[in-house]
Design a protein around this nucleic acid. Sequence first.
DNA 1: AGCAACGCCTGATAGC
DNA 2: TGCTATCAGGCGTTGC
Length: 283
Amino acid sequence: MPEVETVVRYLRVALKGLRIKSVDVYLPKALAFPDTASFQAALSGKVFLELKRRGKYIIACLTDAMALVVHLRMSGQLVYEPEGEPLPKHTHILWHLSRGRLRFTDLRQFGRVWLVPADRLELVPGLRDLGVEPLGKGFQVETLAGALSGRRKSIKAVLLDQTLIAALGNIYTDEALYRAQIHPLRPAATLTARETDALYQAIQEVLREGIAHRGTSIRDYVNGTGQAGSYQNLLRVYGREGEACPRCGQPIARIKVAGRGAYFCPRCQPTTESPSLSLPPEG
DNA sequence: AGCAACGCCTGATAGC
DNA sequence: TGCTATCAGGCGTTGC
């Protein structure tokens, strides 16, 4: 989510007031709705008004009450740049604007684009089912407690479930669980009130830090101007298998949880509640 | 209903 | 060098 929020913050300023002259679609399947011809015809002449984020979806509000929705998935990029530069490989959709161009580039081809009426966002699968925004007023510690109660699956799997909390990806679940000193395999319903509170704080901390550092760039991620973020340098556990835990020095471990790589400290994140949870972390 | 496994893609890297 | 296996920021579908 911090990566998506960063893209939105750049593009909100860059695209405002620009008019779409024409659209090239090089990979039709990247366009989830509608078909290429309808997409091109409907977008011609539209003007960008405002950009929003909901979960990991980018929503561009256009004139005539239309909304251009983009999900970058794993490797997608949405970049505004001058016309005439060489087109990067894996560029699937290209918008020619009244000034400059907007390109959707995606090596793994998982990302998708939709064009729907602004009041029919439910036409985008996933978007309509999103849970609470973790940095919004609707997210309280009781919200998190409610999401965990009665769920026997792992806390990491629950945090990754976008229908409960809209935003947390693999990096930020690991970082939040590390800070809260909770093992990723702990059944969600077994978290104590104290752990739930620590996790509630940790989720907001890691997301705010991620945004403040303009996202995490490991491979493909760049913001709306094509620049990398810097949060990868501040990650405590993600991608650091074998490195020393910043808190206790124990090597960071990696296991598989919910089909994803999960990085954690075996000492700081025991499979039962940590007795040292009330102690402040070092550094 | 809840949950885990798989599929979708290309490319980088590790191990043999 | 060149092969194979594994891994990658996510989510929709399938089947148990």
